[in-house]
Amino acid sequence: MFTTLISAAELQQLGNNVVVLDCRFRLNDADYGRAAYDAGHITGAHYLHLDYHLSGTKNGNNGRHPLPEGQRLAVNLGSLGIAPDTQVVAYDDAGGMYAARAWWLLRWLGHESVAVLDGGVQAWQQAGGVLDQSDPERNATRFSMAPARESVVTLDDISANLCTPQFLLVDARAPDRFAGENETMDPVGGHIPGAKNRFFMLNLNEDGLFKSAQQLREEWLALLDGQPLDEVVLSCGSGVTACHNKLALEHAGLHGARLYAGSWSEWCSDSSRPVATGA
Rank of each mutant, 00 (worst) to 15 (best):
F2Y: 13
T3E: 15
T3W: 09
T4R: 05
A9K: 12
E10R: 10
L11C: 07
L14H: 12
L14Y: 11
G15S: 06
N16S: 15
D22E: 08
D22G: 09
C23V: 08
N28Q: 13
R34G: 10
A36D: 12
A36T: 09
A36G: 08
Y37Q: 02
H41W: 06
I42V: 13
H46A: 08
Y47I: 00
L48A: 12
D51K: 03
S55C: 01
G56H: 02
T57W: 13
T57Q: 15
N62T: 07
R64K: 10
G70L: 01
L77R: 04
P84E: 11
T86L: 04
V89E: 12
V89P: 10
A90I: 01
Y91C: 07
A94D: 08
M97N: 10
R101E: 11
W103L: 04
W103D: 11
W104A: 06
W104V: 03
W108V: 01
W108R: 05
E112S: 13
S113H: 14
V116L: 06
D118I: 02
G119P: 06
G119K: 00
V121R: 07
Q126S: 13
A127T: 05
A127M: 04
G128N: 07
L131H: 14
L131P: 15
Q133G: 15
Q133E: 14
D135I: 14
E137V: 15
E137D: 15
A140F: 08
T141F: 06
F143Q: 06
A148H: 10
R149Y: 15
S151N: 08
V152L: 05
S159A: 15
S159N: 12
S159V: 13
L162A: 15
T164M: 05
P165C: 04
Q166E: 14
L169I: 03
L169W: 05
V170Y: 03
V170L: 02
A174Y: 09
A174T: 09
D176P: 11
R177F: 05
A179T: 13
G180H: 01
E181R: 13
E181N: 13
N182H: 14
N182F: 13
E183V: 03
T184V: 08
M185E: 15
P187K: 01
V188L: 08
G189M: 01
G190V: 01
I192F: 08
P193C: 03
F200C: 00
L202C: 11
L202K: 12
N203H: 13
L204S: 09
L204H: 12
E206K: 10
D207A: 08
L209T: 15
F210A: 03
K211W: 11
E218V: 14
L221A: 14
D225P: 02
P228W: 00
L229I: 07
L229G: 14
V232W: 02
V232P: 04
V232D: 04
G239P: 03
V240Q: 09
T241N: 07
T241D: 09
A242W: 00
C243E: 03
N245D: 14
K246N: 15
L247K: 03
L254T: 06
L254D: 14
L254W: 07
A257P: 12
Y260I: 00
A261N: 11
A261G: 10
G262Q: 00
W264R: 06
S265T: 00
S265M: 01
S272N: 08
S272E: 11
S272G: 07
R273Y: 09
R273K: 07
R273N: 11
P274F: 07
V275D: 09
A276R: 01
A279K: 07
A279F: 10
